[in-house]
Design a binder for these strands. Structure first.
Lengths: 199, 199, 199, 199
DNA sequence: CGATAAGCGAGACGGTACGTCTGGTCTTATC
DNA sequence: GATAAGACCAGACGTACCGTCTCGCTTATCG
């Protein structure tokens, strides 16, 4: 999230906003997360470093902004059944995670732990919104009578998010098989929830 | 894995091997992954930087060696049922992941993507041995007749590893609840496998 | 001679230019040539190492610049006689050589041989200007009729420079006696030239 | 001057003594003074570093020993006249200085200032013996009646040594012209001494 | 003869400096 | 006041070298 601009003086050139984001993505693709430097972004984009740091506090924020596309906040529309809702949810999660190469994901994750502020922002935006979606889906199932009581959202979240995370981040799984895998994950979670109430 | 030593000349001092590993862990705990420097390790351990770089090509290799404890290779003993085997397996995986703080895990993961050699080593040691254990457990279940056919090991691996990974790495879950959570993950996977053959 | 700066962007801070030179001289005086480190210069001057290496390619260039004060170019004014001219010239040379402690002189000399670029610069600035002065003095003497033909400049240069060099660099002679010694050198050379034409 | 050996235990291998000296000279010629490393000498000579440091306290002592051929101590034989004695003396000095490349001379000189012990040894051996020779020559001239009183030996030493030093060290003079130049230096000094009593 | 002492090649060790690089800030002149 | 260029501080990185030490071995003299 770029720093705000008080609306006084020369307005920011929005071409630059775009150039930063695009160049960052380019260079991430070319040189990988570890090989990305702010100087390189500035040079390639034909802008000054100050223009970057006026918008983002740190390099990590810049990458975060360039990578983590401002993500969906709404829980998926009611699909009628818990099974359908979980599948939709899992697909959204998978789409998020597949949006960036694995090295970027890993790098970002590391930076989130290195920089407390970034961690907080990540938790508040990304995590919180996902968690809300999970909660909403579960609550709908309770309302429908599919579940007796609402299971712990964190647990379900981990059951959905985790396998996909592992697939792209650790196991370097084929992303072509992702739709299929997504279905497996969703159904496994659904099966578990429907069979036995998970704490 | 440290660089080798041709058996000629003065042998490496194994006290130093140990000191590097211990000091690295100490400093990781004190200052976090991002705050670790090679100079600090050398200074604290009372050794020269050369002694470190004689053993490890890069800082990352050092951290890797200090962190990824040369890990279990054996699949869990036969527990009699798929359910029991999966629980044991999941517990082993969880123990591995809980061995290091989250920031170290994240940092290591990022470095694995940054350094190809490290990535290969990680895949060959850590991943391969885990995968073999998963395969063994599944094969036992087929032999027992619990499963009709052996499911894809990668998928099951992701279903087991993923939620735990997400729990410690993303959701910053309470590690005290890990035993309980581990059980949930194992049972969810068991349920899925026993209900429907996963691809 | 510092690296140039293309007039675009933030200009070099000339305070730093000065600080580097002064601090280098200070530390040379305090710790001697062999004890001088770039880190110490940076630390004492309160600047970053990069600011030094932006100006000088190597430590040696820095010392060179800090020590070999951009020196006089003009031959001494016409003193009326060869004897007088030689004395003036010798005094200038002696003043140059006494400007730095013996260890710095020796260190610099060694570095000049170690680094070809430095050697060239030394020859072109220091040596060439001194040689021109010697030539000019000798030519004046020929014009005056004191000498029948112009002697080889290199030889005369060696006769003037050498003894002083030996005095400060090898024999560790008392610098208090330098004025007297300078006179001796000048007169010895004058006597030789006036008696017999030196090749 | 190598460290002594108490005659007990295995005796030193004199092949190694020679190998060190020869290899040092070789490498000095190939890579220059600044490029010489002890490891390289040991490797090239096929010996261990310890064998070197058992003989010489420091790298500089090794180079010193390999370079400064154990030099003449005797003043030149009586040539009958001051002029002839000075020429002989100058030739000896020139021979000494021409024995090593200029960069080695410069490097050695710098090291002499860096290492007090080496400086003392240099002064006591090289310098002192030269000075004695100068004194002896001057005294002979007084005895012969060529000179009224014995001039200051240091001064004469500087007048003889200096120009040659400058020739090889600073002016990078052609060493082929050395014999001629030597004569010039000797005669200039003789002329000065015979004309006027130098301090 | 065996014990003792030292030499030897190889190379690890602690220490220290080098020169490079990057991140994030600041300073010009220009727009 | 935003911008491009680039200087600035801080400090980590990985390399190189020095002089010392340790290993397992060899080679001499002494008892």
């Amino acid at each position: 999230m770029p720093k705000p601009n008080r609306g006084v003086g020369r307005p920011r050139n929005s071409d630059i906003d775009l150039a930063i984001v695009c160049t960052t993505r380019e260079l991430l693709a070319e040189r990988g997360y570890a090989g990305l430097t702010v100087d390189a972004v500035a040079a390639r984009a034909g802008i000054g470093k100050a223009a970057i740091y006026r918008r983002y506090k740190t390099k990590q924020e810049m990458i975060f902004a360039a990578t983590v596309h401002d993500l969906w906040e709404q829980p998926p529309p009611d699909g009628g059944t818990l099974r359908a809702d979980l599948l939709a949810l899992t697909r959204t999660i998978a789409a998020q995670l597949c949006g960036a190469p694995a090295d970027v994901l890993a790098g970002l994750l590391a930076d989130i732990y290195a920089d407390k502020a970034l961690g907080t922002r990540f938790a508040e935006t990304f995590l919180e919104s996902e968690r809300k979606a999970v909660t909403a889906v579960l609550e709908r199932a309770v309302t429908r009578g599919e579940l007796a009581s609402r299971p712990e959202a964190s647990t379900v979240h981990a059951l959905l998010l985790g396998p996909i995370l592992a697939w792209v981040l650790i196991l370097d799984g084929d992303r072509g098989e992702m739709p299929e895998f997504t279905r497996t994950v969703a159904e496994a979670t659904a099966a578990t929830l429907l069979l036995r109430p998970t704490s």
